[in-house]
């Protein structure tokens, strides 16, 4: 196929951010971030298989403030990617494709992901009686 010197479409930076484009970018960003999270999960499981000391060290890292920051980020990324993935499936079924609906579902997904993340972390702290 001839692709020669055709003009290229301008890239992301020339467009004004909109809820639709920003959430689309979030979907890919969270997906890549969750891939790193999946590697952390594999590391965590392998540490448990390796022995109690290795598991303790991994747990110590994850309960350190930096580890908790990562876990908080992964919690939101997972819940956002999950909620927005459901939004994608509605589109796949041909539903909710009018622009006002797309914007509304976008805000709904964004708010739902934040609320669910805060709920999960409140529950997590509740489990410990606030000891961490």
């Amino acid at each position: 196929m001839t692709t020669g010197n055709r003009p290229l479409s301008p890239h992301l930076q020339v467009y004004k951010p909109q809820i639709t484009s920003v959430l689309s970018i979030f979907h890919r960003f969270t997906g890549v971030g969750l891939a790193v999270g999946a590697l952390m999960l594999a590391y965590w499981l392998n540490a448990a298989a390796y022995g109690p000391e290795a598991f303790e060290r991994t747990q110590a890292f994850l309960t350190h403030w930096f580890g908790k920051l990562l876990l908080f980020g992964w919690t939101w990324a997972l819940l956002y990617h999950l909620c927005n993935g459901i939004r994608h499936m509605f589109w796949d079924a041909g539903r909710g494709l009018e622009m006002p609906q797309v914007r509304a579902s976008g805000w709904f997904v964004y708010i739902a992901s934040v609320v669910l993340t805060l709920l999960a972390w409140t529950a997590g702290y509740g489990m410990l009686g606030g000891s961490y």
Binding site: P52, E56, Q59, T63, A120, A123, M127
Partner: peptide
């Protein structure tokens, strides 16, 4: 994961 926060092996 929430129920496993800070658990030992």
């Amino acid at each position: 994961a929430v129920t496993l926060v800070g658990i030992d092996r």
